[in-house]
């Protein structure tokens, strides 16, 4: 286990920022920490790096208990990209060199690593530019490069795609994928970018107001939550179609779209036949795949909580 939170609570002043949090991050897994602003994500990340210490419970990183001031060996194996700033007066190259040296990388390797990363992140022509002259997206790239240049065992990313263009998001995700598959790096990612997350993430935890709402393998959670096959039907009269679908099972209109749930996959053939027989024009029937985004909104809306989730599994 790379990270282990056991009944962790954190009190700052008189407020509990986190309460009784439990989760694990496994080796080589990508873990997404999700939650609205102020949910306690940053506090969670700071507890892992030992910048904050838990009021109750235990945080273990690489199997060792983490405490506030004596975690230098543990930090050696962690790479962090968060909203911390770079040294604006220094160039990209100087910033990266400084970081590499702090992690004890020798000068030649730093040079090679900077070359490799600037190629991947398409920053070669900005290497000698002062950070103060870079755009937000470019600074974000440098922050990611800084976090991964010492090849950490655990990579912590806080909103890694914020400020990046779509092509760059693709490139960053592909590179992170390589880190996981080739080097078995574990990634903890706090993000609000939920679209397409299931393609990259293994496990998720959703926290809200300092409480863990949901935690586990993303695919299992989705499959357990939505056991039925859901189809989106587009017809010329969705209201009539809804009445027909209701005869076969749970059906509803969501965001103007007609959705019908089937316990068995082939039930959709009977429904489509019934719709045709009635004389409706059917423009499309698409299987609606539930995503982490659906899971997130269901959870945050309070339709699920940690306890009711247990009933699904």
């Amino acid at each position: 286990m790379i990270v282990n939170f056991e009944n962790v609570s954190k009190k700052i002043g008189s407020n509990y920022i986190l309460e009784n949090i439990n989760f694990d991050i496994k080796k080589g897994h990508v873990f997404a920490l999700l939650g609205p602003n102020g949910a306690g994500k940053t506090t969670t990340l700071r507890l892992i790096t030992g910048l904050l210490s838990a009021t109750n419970g235990e945080v273990k990183v690489f199997g060792k208990k983490i405490s506030s001031n004596k975690n230098n060996k543990i930090r050696q194996n962690i790479g962090i990209q968060n909203d911390c700033s770079l040294y604006e007066k220094l160039t990209v190259n100087q910033n990266l060199k400084f970081w590499g040296k702090l992690y004890g990388i020798d000068s030649n390797k730093i040079k090679d690593k900077i070359n490799e990363l600037t190629n991947i992140f398409k920053m070669n022509n900005k290497l000698n530019s002062k950070v103060s002259t870079l755009s937000k997206g470019m600074k974000q790239k440098v922050l990611i490069m800084r976090a991964i240049m010492h090849e950490p065992r655990l990579l912590i990313l806080d909103e890694p795609t914020s400020g990046l263009d779509p092509q760059m998001i693709e490139d960053v995700i592909s590179y992170l994928d390589v880190l996981v598959k080739k080097f078995n790096t574990s990634i903890l990612m706090a993000t609000h970018q939920l679209q397409g997350l299931e393609d990259f993430v293994d496990d998720i935890a959703i926290i809200n107001s300092g409480k863990l709402m949901l935690n586990g393998n993303a695919k299992k959670l989705i499959n357990n939550r939505w056991k039925n096959y859901v189809y989106e039907i587009d017809s010329d009269h969705n209201d009539i179609a809804l009445n027909i679908c209701l005869k076969y099972g749970n059906s509803y209109i969501k965001n103007g779209k007609l959705l019908t749930e089937c316990i068995k996959r082939n039930e959709i053939s009977n429904i489509s036949k019934a719709l045709f027989d009635y004389g409706l024009n059917i423009y499309g029937i698409v299987e609606h795949k539930h995503t982490i985004k659906d899971m997130y909104f269901e959870t945050i809306k309070g339709e699920m909580n940690e306890y009711s989730y247990k009933n699904y599994i």
Binding site: I80, C84, S85, W99, Y103, G104
Partner: peptide
């Protein structure tokens, strides 16, 4: 705001 990054290093 560079202190947090620095304190996260070894």
């Amino acid at each position: 705001k560079t202190i947090e990054g620095l304190l996260n290093t070894p």
